[in-house]
Structure formats: C-alpha cells, structure tokens
C-alpha cells in the first residue's frame, strides 16, 4: 500500500457571508508522497478554500461543517493551535495566490526571505542571507543582488511571485500548496519553475497541491487532477485519463475553452449554458 501524504475526506464548509451557502460539498482528495495533484475549477469553485482549510487559515466567515484533513497520519482539523503553528511554514508551505498582499511593503526582500530561514531553519543571519540569494537565483531572478535590496513595489509582478515561490521552497517543506503560483510569469520562466517543482518532488519526495486554471500546466506537471464546481468534485483521476477520456461534459467543455497558439481557430468557446444547467441540477443548486 502506498502511503498518502495528505488525505482529505468528506470536507464540507459553508460561508456565513453568503447566508450559510455551502462552499465545499463533501470534498475528498488524496496526495501521495511525491505526488503532484492539480486542483482546477472556475473562480469561486472553492480551490483556495481547500488550500486555506489545510493550512488552518480560513477566514472567520467560512465554517467547516464536517470532514477530516489527514496529514502524515494526523488530523489537522483537530490539532491544537500551537501544534499547527509548528507544522505550518515548515512541514507545509504555501505559495499564496496574491503576491501583492503577501509581502510586507515596508521591508526589503532579502530581510523577508532571511526571516523565514532564521526562524524555521535556525540559520545564522549570514548563512540565511547567502541562502536567500541562492534561492532567488534558483527561481530564475536575473539580478538577485539588486532584488535582495529592493522593496516589493520596485519589482515587477512576476518577480514578486518568484520571491514567494523562493520563500516557500526555502523551508524545505514536505507539502507545498501552490495557489496559482505562475499566473504572472512568462512561459519560459514558468517552465523553469515547473522544473524546479519537479526536481524538489523527485529529489525530496515533496508533495504538491497545484491550484491552477491552466489545463496545459496540469498536463505537464501533475500526475492526478481534481476538478471542482461550486465546491463539489466533478471529476478526478490520473491526468492522462481525465484529459483524454473525460467523463463529464463540463470537463470536455473546459478543455475546449482554452485558446491554443497552435490552433488559432480552435478554443475560445465559453462553457455552454446547458452544461452549467446540468451541473447545477446534479449538485442540487438552483
């Protein structure tokens, strides 16, 4: 039997802001040691909510109403706050969706990266700085020396995003939750980042939960994929199966919606209203 790094079972949650509307409906997913699972679905489908539930950082207005999140044999949902704190940011690391708000605008990048290394990996200030510099080079930042001394607003969007990727990898976690980590990157840098993730995963067995809208990324880096709609798992399985033989009409429609440079006349077909109607009926929402 293969050991799962992460097993989510029957996870349900409601949003108090939207009158108790369910945001997760009986979600189950597994991640093997060294596995990379893609988590896809439209805006509002609940991808970030799953990520936040695992990290224990849900907003007060989102309430978990059932389920388990098992990480290396322990249920994260019933763990004490200080136990959770020791795991988060060291065994489990997040690459957040929003690079604007995740960095402290008033501190230089070098200092922010070194903080994590000193705190979570017990490094001296000098070692932490040298290590931070190397991490920036690893994520393909051209002039790491300048970036170390920069404030967040002095970097381009893609550079800020790479700083956050470096910060997550810095702690050598066992599980990385990457919430749309490459949206602001050009494809050549994106490919290097995907390679870096693959390297971490094969060298150290790091598991990755990869939230993305891009089925191309899913095809090239993930081994399994979970598709959500309105908080419900619509399709799940090995990537190749799902892409080549999707079960659900919604999955097929999503594959057809993406533009393709190699087929300028294909793609750009929004998901038909009929498919959404069918989905809502299936889930039981009006």
């Amino acid at each position: 039997m293969t050991e799962n790094l992460l097993t989510v079972t029957g996870l349900s949650a409601v949003s108090d802001r939207e009158g108790g509307m369910p945001v997760l409906r009986d979600v189950g997913l597994t991640l093997k040691n060294g596995g990379v699972r893609g988590l896809v679905g439209e805006s509002g489908a609940g991808k970030s909510t799953i990520a936040k539930a695992i990290l224990g950082i849900l907003p007060r207005t989102v309430r978990i109403t059932g389920g388990w999140i098992n990480f290396k044999g322990r249920d994260l949902l019933s763990m004490k706050p200080q136990e959770l704190r020791s795991i988060m940011g060291s065994e489990i690391a997040l690459i957040p969706q929003d690079p604007q708000t995740a960095l402290n605008p008033a501190r230089r990048i070098g200092a922010q990266l070194a903080d994590g290394l000193k705190l979570k990996r017990d490094m001296s200030a000098r070692t932490a700085e040298a290590h931070a510099l190397q991490l920036l080079a690893d994520v393909q930042i051209r002039d790491p020396d300048r970036v170390m001394k920069s404030f967040p607003h002095q970097l381009s969007g893609g550079m800020r995003q790479r700083v956050l990727i470096a910060a997550a990898f810095a702690v050598e976690p066992e599980l990385v939750i990457a919430d749309e980590p490459t949206t602001a990157l050009d494809v050549t840098v994106q490919k290097e980042i995907l390679r870096l993730i693959r390297h971490m995963q094969s060298a150290r067995g790091t598991g990755v939960l990869f939230v993305t809208h891009d089925l191309g990324i899913v095809a090239q880096i993930c081994d399994s994929v979970t598709l959500l709609y309105a908080g419900k798992v619509i399709e799940e399985g090995p990537v190749r199966n799902v892409l080549e033989n999707p079960n659900h009409a919604y999955t097929k429609a999503l594959i057809a919606a993406g533009p393709r440079y190699d087929r300028p006349d294909a793609g750009l077909e929004p998901v038909p209203e009929a498919v959404f109607r069918e989905l809502r009926q299936e889930i039981g929402i009006s």
């Binding site: 050549t188 995907l194 191309g216 990324i217 095809a219 090239q220 880096i221 990537v239 993406g258 440079y261």
Partner: peptide, 18 residues
C-alpha cells in the same frame, strides 16, 4: 521560438518538461 516551445499544451507529453 523558446516562448512558443515553453507553452504547456493540455496533452499528454511526458518529455516536455525536460
């Protein structure tokens, strides 16, 4: 050319990443 080659397509292509 490098930009075009680096676009991930939603197709099974095991050698792409390397």
């Amino acid at each position: 050319r490098a930009l075009l080659d680096a676009i991930p397509l939603p197709e099974y292509d095991p050698g792409w990443l390397e």
